[in-house]
């Protein structure tokens, strides 16, 4: 199967290893991986800040970039939700509405693609350590992803999955919210970190690097040793 990767801008610049891990896992599973060049940002920062005209201008670029792709796999639940759920809203009553609706069902978040499209639960990974999983809100509530990452993790050899309390509670990142309301964002993150640390896990895994940036930022500042990893980075280890 030919799979087109969508590597959101901040993953491209800050967490490229997430994308590289996705390539490794997908190739291991026999997919033909493609990366449509020229991709930038899905437009979510502008969209979430109320600048829908600007978001549309950026989203148009994405629509164009991925126009000829049949299967698009996103490294982030949040950016995937932007393209699958919010593009149709964003382009309502514009000439691109049809394109947005046509593209929506082709967008998949990584874990959901592996489990629901490829039908794979065991990717042949090995990872020694205790892991807790944080549900990114957009993946969880916009895309309905809950069991898929857990199924994948439960098949990783050597991995011990422990659930934290309130795993479905937001980490407080929220894009521009994190800098518009830093006090609230930080408090939410602290609550999350308390729940993470209580599990005594060595790693926090999520399918959204943006949440992990918030969580790791706080854990590091607290001097905590717990490390954040994207799900793909765990699944790529053999």
């Amino acid at each position: 199967m030919k799979v087109s990767l969508f590597i959101p801008c901040f993953i491209d610049q800050f967490y490229p290893h997430v994308g590289i891990s996705m390539v490794q896992v997908l190739e291991r599973l026999g997919c033909e991986v493609d990366y449509p060049e020229g991709q930038t940002c899905c437009g979510q920062p502008a969209f979430n800040s109320g600048y829908w005209d600007e978001a549309r201008a950026v989203a148009e670029h994405s629509l164009k970039t991925f126009k000829d792709c049949d299967v698009i796999v996103s490294a982030s639940g949040s950016c995937g939700a932007m393209m699958r759920v919010f593009y149709p809203d964003l382009f309502k009553e514009t000439v691109h509405h049809f394109d947005a609706l046509k593209m929506a069902p082709k967008i998949h978040e990584f874990s959901e693609f592996l489990v629901n499209v490829l039908g794979v639960k065991d990717v042949g990974a090995r990872f020694d350590g205790t892991v807790t999983f944080h549900d990114g809100c957009h993946g969880l509530r916009e895309l309905g992803i809950k069991t898929e990452p857990r199924e994948l993790l439960s098949h990783v050899k050597g991995l011990n999955l422990v659930e934290m309390n309130d795993t479905e509670t937001c980490c407080g990142f929220g894009g521009t919210f994190s800098v518009k309301f830093p006090a609230i964002s930080t408090a939410m993150g602290e609550v999350k970190c308390t729940n993470i640390v209580a599990t005594k896990a060595d790693y926090v895994v999520s399918n959204d690097s943006s949440c992990l940036m918030q969580i790791q930022g706080l854990l590091d500042r607290q001097g905590n040793k717990v490390k954040c990893l994207h799900l793909a980075e765990v699944l790529a280890r053999t």
Binding site: Y15, T186, M213, Q214, L218, R221
Partner: peptide, 14 residues
């Protein structure tokens, strides 16, 4: 002020 910021990667995914 409250959180560490990640470093940019030496090589981007692109």
């Amino acid at each position: 002020k409250t959180r560490d910021f990640p470093d940019m990667a030496p090589q981007s995914f692109q």
